[in-house]
């Protein structure tokens, strides 16, 4: 079993390596995408600066705390889309019968699918996350903790995307609904928890777990709590298991399109 895990990890790393080489081929386009994404995210600083000229605090949060929500969300989302952008393409693969190419390989199908693609602009999200952290909440401890927490955030986000997209096995054109669910996840994670009522908070901790990817990590950086950290890791593992389970249950319903095409 350990050898199998090792082999799958090796394949995943190779996949990531070649994805990166591919996007780097057109450097101008890559750098434009990255810098535009940084600009895109940075524009929201103006939004919050303006809000903080109107009110002194949002709950007990200062501007620096709010920027932590942005740093964590941006970093997690960026990392997820750099490493596992293939998760976003599951509906396309299912609807167009493109999973065939992955099914015939003697490797874990889901791992192979999710690492099959990378999103160049996601580097902008990741870089912006670190910039926001360094400008607003710099400390060596924070950088270490942040790096660890965005990995957890990326795993939660990817698991959520896999769960949503696995419904494409059951429902036709579910991809549009899935896009909306992803948007809600992102929107929920960039805004502070205090603005939401209890019902929305429950949804954001369970059905759309953006609270686990953003709110909890922010609280851990502000004040580390080992109990919450362990719970976060447990919750992440549960989400990963659900994602794998739903994908493979759905895969049983997959029918090949007999499409003959080479994988790029």
């Amino acid at each position: 079993m350990l050898t199998e895990v090792k082999n799958n990890l090796k394949i995943m790393f190779l996949s990531l390596k070649y994805n990166l080489i591919r996007v780097m081929e057109n450097r101008v386009s890559f750098l434009t995408s990255v810098s535009m994404m940084i600009f895109n995210n940075a524009s929201f600083i103006i939004q919050w600066l303006t809000i903080f000229t109107l009110v002194e605090y949002i709950g007990s949060y200062t501007l620096n705390d709010i920027m932590l929500f942005w740093a964590i969300s941006s970093g997690s989302y960026g990392l997820a889309n750099i490493l596992f952008n293939g998760a976003n393409k599951i509906p396309e693969y299912i609807e167009n019968g493109k999973l065939d190419a992955y099914l015939v390989m003697p490797k874990n199908v889901l791992c192979h699918v999710i690492t099959s693609s990378t999103e160049p602009s996601a580097w902008g999200d990741l870089i912006y996350g670190y910039i926001a952290l360094i400008i607003f909440n710099f400390s060596i401890k924070n950088i270490f903790l942040y790096s660890l927490l965005i990995i957890i955030g990326a795993l939660i986000y990817t698991s959520f995307v896999i769960i949503c997209n696995s419904f494409t096995f059951y429902f036709i054109r579910f991809s549009e609904t899935s896009e909306i669910l992803k948007d809600i996840f992102i929107n929920g994670s960039i805004y502070p928890d205090v603005i939401f009522n209890r019902a929305i908070k429950i949804i954001f901790f369970t059905l759309i777990p953006c609270a686990l990817a953003s709110w909890v990590p922010v609280h851990l950086i502000i004040e580390f709590n080992i109990y919450h950290f362990i719970l976060l890791i447990l919750a992440t593992n549960i989400l990963i298991i659900i994602a794998f389970f739903l994908f493979y249950q759905g895969l049983k319903r997959y029918t090949s399109s007999n499409l003959m095409e080479a994988r790029s």
Binding site: E179, I180, I184, N187, Y191, I195, I200
Partner: peptide, 29 residues
């Protein structure tokens, strides 16, 4: 129609934010 759902959710998140900002104020600017 599917975009309407996204629009409605975006608006409800923004309403939550502004409701919170307006907690201690009746008018802003």
């Amino acid at each position: 129609f599917i975009r309407f759902i996204g629009f409605a959710i975006t608006m409800s998140i923004l309403l939550s934010l502004w409701t919170f900002i307006y907690q201690d104020n009746t008018t802003i600017s």
